[in-house]
């Protein structure tokens, strides 16, 4: 587990239809000091974003149920919510190149280590913080 608590509480939305994977990563990120919202698909993500809730990072599984898959969701967020960072996760080989075009730091291959995800989130938040200062 990370020993560094974020300087201010940041909100991460975990978009993951596999409940056991979601449960583990959500609890890990909460223990690291993040506020975590758990979503099972894109409809729930838009309910959060359209409801005006502040979100810093979206961790999105590529394979999502419903009309909008993870790529499409990431694409829409890139177009309409530039203030939100996106990390894609995938257990499917071959999605890597497409993921690179849609997320800030490249995709995270499953099975992932929770600390790897947290490190990636921290990099993105640091980058935002640095950009604000300049």
């Amino acid at each position: 587990m990370s020993s560094t608590v974020p300087a201010e509480i940041r909100t991460v939305v975990v978009v993951e239809p596999d409940v056991l994977a979601r449960m583990v990563i959500a609890e890990y990120l909460r223990d690291c000091g993040y506020k975590v919202i758990e979503a099972v698909g894109s409809t729930e993500v838009w309910a959060v974003l359209d409801g005006g809730h502040a979100v810093d990072v979206l961790l999105i599984e590529v394979s999502l149920p419903g009309d909008e898959n993870g790529f499409e969701l990431a694409h829409r967020i890139r177009q309409t919510r530039r203030e939100v960072d996106v990390i894609l996760t995938s257990g499917v080989a071959g999605t890597v190149q497409q993921s690179h075009e849609l997320c800030e730091e490249g995709p995270i291959k499953k099975p992932y280590e929770a600390k790897e995800v947290e490190a990636r989130i921290k990099i993105l938040l640091e980058r935002r913080r640095a950009a604000k200062k300049t």
């Binding site: 449960m23 959500a26 909460r30 506020k35 758990e38 099972v40 729930e44 959060v48 409801g51």
Partner: peptide, 21 residues
């Protein structure tokens, strides 16, 4: 979700470990 999330957060603040499904 807009009910599950605040309920989960409230119960966590009350000291429970909460698994959201």
């Amino acid at each position: 979700l807009l009910l599950r999330w605040p309920t989960g957060e409230y119960l966590r603040d009350a000291g429970y470990r909460v698994i959201e499904t």
